[in-house]
């Protein structure tokens, strides 16, 4: 459906380099990456906003590389929605139909049905300046979909709306995609959104695609330390394989030894990556299988859980659920057992 072949673009000091991507019809594809990675520019390159882009963009089998945005059949919704402040909600939604020179008697009922579909009836005569974030978003989406584009590009659509509206909007997106057979490319930096919506995701760092895969692949099996750090592997250590046979290995990290599933041969230098939420804690200086003795050195409570820093010869970050944290009553200075299942240890060549 969407194929990018060596798409490159330089804007001032930023450059997007040799992007190859293939996105299937009806897929909900995510582009994730740190800020400044070029995610929005990648969307704009698909949309054809910057005429100087190199490489080829193929949409639905048609090479659109030389075509301006208005002839590509894509809709783009920016983070700030880009509603036209001088037009009413209804006029905003009608804009795409007007550009196609449709007669008024055709446009009016189409706009009315979109307004009803998106539940924004009471807003139709208002100007965007007086709408809330959630309302703006619905209007922007209705406007983008008014001309039935097969492809929808979304730039951080959740950034400016209240958390309680997010669930609803995610559900709406799923429904829209199913009903209209939309192919969606969405820029995001929220893991939550990716897990809720993505079929696949690409990790963009420093203007180039570092990994493409299912959400499990990207979040469980990053291909590089950079991707690992971005996708939330807080524990990344250099190590060496002490012994390895039949997929099971002992890895030395500094002064401690970990078990892991890997096929790296004995003696290899590796990077060991472990997600904070995959590490478990047990009270007391326990020393069971796959557990190491350690001491809690720091605790910071977040919205969804508690981030515990512990030292077991190397500093390890552990994410605990709030309930577990409270039940155990952990405190800084407590001796704990830090347990790491060999299955959660991800290794990269060092």
């Amino acid at each position: 459906m969407i194929r990018l072949e060596g798409v490159s673009l330089t804007l001032g000091s930023f450059s997007l380099g040799g992007i190859d991507l293939s996105i299937g019809e009806g897929e909900h594809f995510f582009v994730i990456g740190p800020s400044g990675a070029g995610k929005t520019i990648l969307l704009e390159a698909i949309a054809g906003i910057h005429p100087g882009a190199g490489g080829r963009v193929i949409l639905g089998g048609r090479d659109v590389s030389g075509l301006p945005p208005e002839r590509r059949g894509i809709a783009l919704v920016y983070q700030d929605y880009g509603l036209f402040p001088h037009l009413t909600v209804a006029e905003n939604i009608a804009f795409g139909l007007m550009t196609r020179g449709r007669p008024r008697w055709e446009i009016v009922p189409m706009v009315e049905s979109l307004i009803a579909q998106f539940g924004i009836g009471p807003l139709s005569g208002r100007h965007p300046g007086s709408l809330s974030g959630g309302e703006k978003q619905r209007v922007a989406l209705a406007r983008a979909l008014a001309t039935d584009p097969p492809i929808l590009l979304l730039d951080e659509p959740f950034a400016a709306i209240d958390p309680q509206l997010r669930e609803q909007f995610m559900a709406d997106l799923r429904t829209l995609r199913r009903e209209k057979g939309l192919t969606i490319v969405q820029v995001s930096h929220s893991r939550e959104e990716v897990f809720a919506l993505a079929d696949r995701a690409a990790v963009l760092i420093g203007g180039s695609v570092r990994q493409v895969g299912s959400r499990e692949e990207v979040f469980r099996r990053p291909v590089s330390v950079e991707v690992a750090r971005f996708t939330g592997f807080e524990n990344v250590f250099p190590g060496q394989v002490l012994s390895s046979h039949s997929g099971h290995a002992e890895i030395r990290i500094g002064g401690l030894v970990l078990s892991a599933h890997t096929t790296f041969p004995t003696g290899s230098r590796v990077m060991v990556c472990i997600r904070g939420e995959d590490v478990t804690l047990a009270p007391g200086p326990g020393n069971g299988e796959d557990c190491l003795p350690g001491v809690i050195t720091g605790i910071s409570e977040g919205e969804h859980g508690v981030r515990v820093r512990a030292d077991t010869g190397v500093p390890i970050v552990v994410h605990l659920a709030k309930r577990e944290f409270r039940e155990q009553g952990y405190q800084s200075g407590d001796y704990v057992a830090i347990c790491i299942d060999p299955a959660v240890v991800h290794m990269l060549p060092g």
Partner: peptide, 27 residues
């Protein structure tokens, strides 16, 4: 006038002139 408004207008089917005359100029 945010340049993104022009970008959005273009993706909605507006030519450069249409985007200029219907979005940028009124604003």
């Amino acid at each position: 006038v945010p340049v993104r408004l022009e970008h959005v207008a273009r993706t909605l089917g507006a030519t450069r002139w249409y985007a200029f005359s219907r979005v940028v100029l009124p604003l």
